[in-house]
Design a protein around this nucleic acid. Structure first.
Lengths: 215, 215
DNA sequence: TCAGCAATTATGCAAGTGTATAATTAGAAA
DNA sequence: TTTCTAATTATACACTTGCATAATTGCTGA
């Protein structure tokens, strides 16, 4: 007697939750939050819809988890320095800017996800906190890099001015990121990081483009 | 015999269409596209739902019209020069930047609307065209102002460089606009235009802040 | 090997969705 | 006043939605 093949596989909870989150994110990016129905998500994850309610207390709960997951993923993407430890502060800042303006950070799906979540962020308190913290994390890292680069160049700046430089640089990066994702064909490859480096450099008063990777 | 009061008012088609569009926009800004159901829109416009189908061939049609209406409204808001005819090019550029970074252009509802529509833009060809044209209109106006301001200051720049300066300046404005709308409490009043003027000035190499309104 | 538990499926429901279609009726025109 | 038409309401239908509940079933530990 041969056994009939199993009708489904049991997965550890954490693993299945992540699979459901990934399916939700893919659908939200493709069709917006409204296209990410419980049934569509379950379908994409090759699972029946009841399972979602078993792992998440509600659809809102899944969406929140997906948002947190996505934001953390984006943070990790931009966090990876990708540059030698001993590099100059200027080189590190330049690398940070360039990373945020190249794939995979610049990506239509990412921008689409960001936009889809923005509305929920305004309603849901938990989401608002994730949003604010991610934004400030990114800006604070930027401010730190700017501070170091200025010090390295022998330029002094008040904390208030450093804050403004960080806000402005962050705005350039965000703006370019957004436009690059929303209008993927409007820019040449490499144009976004080039403009970004040039502009952040002009704002803080340091040329970031002619940067050898060596210290 | 007194006549019973009329049970409803007949409005000219264009007027009712605009009322329906405004109701739709208000709902989308408040609750996102998913909250803007046919019934909710009709309710807010003090009308029964059937009327929507009489004036628009489908809900999609209404949403498209609302998007075009909103974009045109935003364009008009930023287009109003609000500054004397004979003003210097520098002053006109500064006024343009400041207008885009103050209310009512900077506004949570506007950002929310923009985000809500972004997904639809990727699917719907008609919406994509509206989006691209609005973006390029704004950027082209910016490029014209930058060109004039540079010429006025005796600075020459290649067309390619002018394009890059416009993209960069546009990105700063967009980024600040977005952050100001998404995190209304994260910035002091007047901080956004201040940073915007400072940054655009640094990017193009002209101080835009110490600008008397006189030519 | 087998008992028990949690992961998974199966089924159904009540509310809300966009849309269609027919019945009213306000208001201008004659 | 009466007619006529387009604006408006009224009603209903088929479908989707999130959620609940009960019935299975894969797997692990004794």
């Amino acid at each position: 007697m041969t056994q009939p093949p199993p009708k489904f596989r049991r997965e550890p909870a954490e693993q299945r939750k992540e699979a459901l989150i990934l399916a939700a994110l893919a659908l939200i990016a493709e069709r917006g939050v409204r296209g990410a129905t419980v049934r569509a998500i379950a379908d994409r994850a090759d699972v029946t819809q009841g399972l979602i309610r078993h792992h998440f207390s509600s659809k809102e709960d899944l969406i929140s988890a997906a948002y947190a997951f996505h934001m953390s993923r984006m943070t990790n993407l931009t966090a990876s320095p990708n540059i030698a430890e001993g590099a100059s502060a200027k080189a590190r800042l330049a690398a940070f800017v360039a990373t945020g303006l190249n794939p995979p950070v610049v990506d239509p799906a990412s921008v689409s996800l960001w936009a889809s979540f923005l509305n929920k962020v305004r309603e849901d308190e938990r989401m608002r906190q994730i949003h604010e913290q991610t934004y400030h994390d990114f800006r604070d890292r930027l401010e730190g890099l700017i501070t170091d680069a200025l010090a390295e160049a022998g330029i002094t700046a008040t904390p208030s001015r450093l804050r403004q430089l960080a806000i402005a640089s962050n705005a350039v990066i965000d703006g370019l990121w957004m436009e690059g994702g929303a209008l993927p064909n409007a820019f040449e490859p490499g144009e976004l990081p080039e403009i970004g480096l040039q502009s952040v450099g002009a704002i803080i008063g340091i040329d970031l483009q002619k940067t050898g990777s060596q210290p």
